[in-house]
Simulated assay, not measured.
Amino acid sequence: MTPHGNVTAVAALGTEWLTWRTAMERALYGNGGFYRRGERPAEHFRTSVHASPRFAQAIARLLIEVDAALGHPDRVDLVDVGAGSGRLLANVLACVPSGLGSRLAPTAVEIAPRPADVPARIVWRPDLPSDITGLAVANEWLDNVPLDVVEHTPDGVRTVLVDPASGAERTGPEPSAEDRDWLERWWPLGEPGDRAEIGHPRCEAWASVIRRFSRGLAIAVDYSHSRRSRPVYGTLAGYRDGSTVPAVPDGSCDVTAHVALDACATAGERAGATAGLLTTQRAALRSLGLSGARPPIEMASRDPRGYLAALCHAGEDAELIDPSGLGGFGWLAQTVQIPLPASLTE
């Protein structure tokens, strides 16, 4: 079959049938894979980081609160997980107070090569630091953690296999015990034709972030869904050059799926998170001062330049908090041994 429909048996000479998790891993991170060869997310889809530096200003406000909760230590880690171009870190560094900025240890976690324009003080590495005291942000990272897909067929739930060259699919074996346990708790299937994306690899990826914290705050930002509103047919999608394309795991496009952030939250708690919050980007950024409200028209005559700047900020904020766009992202905020920032809980 073609992607995004019901699974049917497909016979093709020389076809290589893989689980979706294996196919995604190869397509995104294998030799010559989409991200391994240095593709940047902003070249293929719009992210909050590239939509406006106002996103980084909101992150900087959280960082200031985290620093205060930590007692202003000599070193404060700022970790961008899945850093892409490194722009988020650069933008945050540009807008934090100098006293905090001098104590920041910024780290980009990214397998792609380091861009030439990344500030020299940013450490660029392919894996997570072993110990974090500060703030870690995973913006549109978990949706690219490879996972398997299952479908409820007339013969029961079966793992979906895919041909990486064409995106054609067919039914495979029964899910593993680990997959079945995750499905039963987080994404039970109702009737034949229903599909699910097995999220425990994302849960483990998020738990691996939390486990590295001594103290601080971790934030995951992604398109997401909850147990009460899982999409019946799943969310696999491909992106290339700013357009949505079929999710063919041949390395030519980004392959992604929305994240079960509620399941990740539970995994984070088990890994050591001591407080947490699930919310939307709209709610989070509004609480951090991004209202999208236009400045009063009287300001135009009193302070023309200030009015234009405020009008520009209002437009950028509006895009970041639009509930049908970037504002619809889920935010998972979890702390280790510090309270949740007051700005997120007010």
Rank of each mutant, 00 (worst) to 15 (best):
G242K: 07
A58L: 02
L28R: 12
L308V: 00
S226W: 14
S343W: 01
D131I: 14
V162S: 07
G328C: 04
D117K: 10
P129S: 12
D117L: 01
R37F: 10
D317M: 00
V123S: 08
A273Q: 09
A168V: 15
C264V: 14
S102R: 14
D77G: 03
A42W: 15
S229K: 03
L147M: 08
L88E: 03
P113F: 07
A263H: 01
V160W: 01
I59D: 04
V92M: 06
V336T: 14
I122S: 03
G82N: 11
T266C: 02
C203T: 11
G238W: 07
V96H: 03
A205D: 09
Y307G: 04
A300H: 05
L261W: 15
D194N: 13
G276L: 15
F34K: 12
A120G: 00
C312F: 08
V96P: 05
C253V: 07
T15R: 15
L128V: 02
A138Q: 00
A218Q: 03
A205H: 11
D250R: 08
D222L: 03
F329S: 11
G33Q: 12
G134N: 06
A60P: 00
A83Y: 13
T274L: 07
I321L: 02
L135E: 07
L161E: 10
Y239W: 14
W186C: 00
A271P: 02
A260Q: 15
I338Y: 15
W20A: 00
L28N: 08
D117I: 10
G156Y: 08
S52Y: 11
E184P: 13
P201F: 05
A196H: 01
F45K: 09
L128S: 07
D77L: 13
A58Q: 02
R158E: 05
